[in-house]
Amino acid sequence: MEEHQWEELYRTLLPRVFHYFSYRVGSIPQAEDLTATTFEKAWRSRWRFRGDEDGFARWVFGIARHVAADYFRKDGHVTLALEKARLVDEHPSPEEYAQTKDDFERLTILLQKLSVRERELIALKYGAGMTNRAIAEVTGLSESNVGTILHRSVNRLRLLWKEKE
């Protein structure tokens, strides 16, 4: 893989991987750490990869899932850690930033009520922005099964969100 290709893929995939982890672990600092671990692993073993851009994304998310599994196994994080992370971004207005922060924190609490698998699919779909087909390829579930589980999970989140209001 050429360096300019890596840079392009890095810029494309970094936010997706970061958002995947932020939905999986519910903590901004942890999501950054795990994102860094994932890209370091991908960089070190990039010589093992062969294929196109889509294949590279699947490959990176395969690494990310293993990194997440290691995180939950080694550190015994069975539930999401909600931390009052300080979010910094140059673009959103203060109001938008405050709203996003508030929404993310509320959502993180609700995500804890889902099963590990449901949470993972939510993270892949809405965090990483993957299609159902791509999620099926990464997780080994059938595409229809992915759709069914996501459908059920979002409805459950919706109900829980309503209860909280």
Binding site: H91, F104, I122
Partner: peptide, 11 residues
């Protein structure tokens, strides 16, 4: 909403 609630990535 689920897409919008993603925390921003720090530059």
């Amino acid at each position: 909403f689920l897409y919008r609630a993603r925390p921003p990535l720090r530059r």
